[in-house]
Design a protein around this nucleic acid. Structure first.
Lengths: 339, 339
DNA sequence: AAAAATCAATTAAACGTTTAACCTGTTTAC
DNA sequence: GTAAACAGGTTAAACGTTTAATTGATTTTT
């Protein structure tokens, strides 16, 4: 590969001059710069990013931590969409993105160690549902600039979807459609879940509806199998709900499966609502009423915040950026006549 | 950060000894190795991957080129699934993956140049439908180890899904269901498309069905909008087809939309078939009959081949690895009574 | 007992950059 | 006319590794 040294000897100047010319420093004459740039192009010179990083400690590389309990990875529609917009935004600002794993070559390591080895400028912790995990906290408490989504940590900027508003929208929608027996299968224990659960309860209260513990079941995110069992359980209650809110759209498939097996039809016999608003949701039968998260903005905002943090334009102690969404009305909720 | 130098002075040995000890060379005594490893751990030493790469020219980093005309990126279910298994396989073998863009910092560059700058060990060209593109050929003809999918190039190993078999399966299935008027909306011009078109034509011939040009329309991959128009066009023919094969499952949504608007129901009024077998396909209404590609194996095989190529265990001139799939029978094709 | 081989370490150069410090010649200031 | 400022360079060190060449001591061979 052609290096700065080759350009230097071709131009009859020192390598320092070449470096400064290519980085457009002020103490190289325009004439020399022009000549250096020209020969650089002619020789097909390309800077070696690791040599540069070694000196400057800047890699223009962002780590992405993409792991969750369900381990669906990139096939997880919602997170894939978030990552996609993160990627687009980061790339347009000159940053590459690299997935953070637990190994480089033969060396096993923690996520944090991986970041240090690779010297990423910062890391986007996406698609993580357990922020209590030892490896995650190690990373979040480290000096590596970090941005998270859906996590309220004092340590690093966070992009949070407006889960309070989202859940309220869903419950109020069901209420307005005449439902009073609204069940909720919620996901794995997490900040998102507790926000949604609180909002579910608060909204019911504000609507003067009693909170029933038999209508609240802990399920799992992105897990149709678990959801299927729980949904079946709910409709077999003596006093079953008329509407069920599911942890996410993909899990809603589980509920649909459960009702098919029980020969119940949606929304005639039972109404359901999802969360996320993935593309799939609008092609399910019936179209799913769900709360659409703005994945486009979430990802882009995460990239902006992370880069701002890297450039020290902001500090870690910021108030989370809240991204709104909207209720996507499908046809999975029946309007009850007795309303 | 703690470097090899710190360990050296802590242990009272030279940095060379430390390096060799940590890389487990033979010419360091076991006792010294043990002591060095111990202090390395105690000091929290982590190797700097760019310094190492600078000397060794091995980054343990694989580039991924992920771009197609529709520009749906990671939200493209089929390619996301392929990438996911590629990622899993690569990571389990100690390789990181980094997306290849056209910029690093403020420097704009071609894909090839990006690979050189970052010094990736190899690159996986996925999700590219135009292998004639100047930037793609520049990369494929370069010295960068490369693996492609769905592309037959003499230059680099390729993983190809068995499109001949896939299309034949679909056509024969339709035939066996009694269909004789089988149309095909095919995707953008590419090796995949021509293989499928040829297989479509060959299969019809072998079944003694005439090939009708009005039943063959060029559409686009992953583009429900275009497909919607073309599907509508097909059913308005004087002698319309009874079954339509679509370029992929996502585009099938376009056909479904078209028929909804025309008040036609699937499969009662018209039968359709997709291609890919994305998760979504089995939750469409009706469930889509489609040819399921083995994304799991395609991605994993791509990673294996690429790493083998990097390690020079294989040369570039290999016969493409063909991955089979299977027909996923849904309920979008009607059994015709007149059979 | 001398020569050869082996072991365990060190020295020093190299990978491709960046950058602080220095140098030299010209211009400006008064 | 001399000092100061500046423009446009160069030198050399450094970033954190790896590794070929070397050294010196011990062991083995004959």
């Amino acid at each position: 590969m052609v290096s700065i040294k080759d350009i230097a000897s071709a131009c009859g100047v020192s390598i320092a001059t070449v470096s400064k010319a290519l980085n457009n420093h002020k103490d190289v004459s325009e004439a020399t710069k022009a000549m250096i740039r020209e020969t650089a192009k002619k020789l097909g010179y390309l800077p070696n990013s690791q040599a540069r990083a070694l000196k400057t400690n800047r890699t223009y590389n962002l780590g992405v931590l993409f792991a969750e309990q369900a381990n669906s990875g990139l096939t997880h529609s919602h997170f894939a969409a978030v990552l996609n917009s993160f990627k687009n935004e980061a790339e347009s600002r000159g940053y590459d993105i690299t997935f953070i794993s637990r190994q480089i070559g033969d060396n096993k390591m923690t996520f944090y160690e991986h970041c240090i080895c690779r010297n990423v400028d910062g890391v986007f912790v996406a698609c993580v549902d357990d922020f209590e995990d030892a490896e995650i906290t190690e990373l979040l408490n480290s000096s590596v600039p970090t941005v998270t989504i859906d996590n309220k940590s004092p340590n690093c900027p966070a992009i949070v979807s407006n889960n309070e508003f989202g859940m309220r929208s869903l419950v109020e929608y069901a209420y307005n459609m005449g439902h009073r027996k609204i069940a909720y299968i919620y996901g794995d224990t997490s900040a998102v879940t507790s926000t949604r659960v609180k909002s579910y309860e608060d909204t019911l209260k504000s609507l003067n509806i009693n909170i029933r513990s038999d209508y609240m079941l802990q399920g799992r995110y992105h897990d149709p199998i678990t959801t299927e069992q729980l949904a079946a359980q709910l409709v077999k209650l003596d006093d079953p709900p008329t509407c069920i809110i599911l942890p996410d759209d993909f899990s809603a498939i589980g509920a649909i499966t459960a009702f098919e097996k029980l020969n119940m039809s949606v929304p005639e016999d039972i109404s359901i609502m999802g969360y996320d608003g993935i593309i799939l949701s609008q092609y399910l039968n019936p179209r799913l009423t769900t709360f659409r998260q703005d994945t486009e903005r979430i990802g882009a905002e995460a990239a902006k915040q992370l880069i701002a943090l890297i450039k020290k334009e902001i500090t870690g102690n910021v108030v989370p950026v809240v991204i709104d969404g909207y209720l996507e009305e499908g046809s999975s909720v029946k309007r009850l006549t007795d309303d």
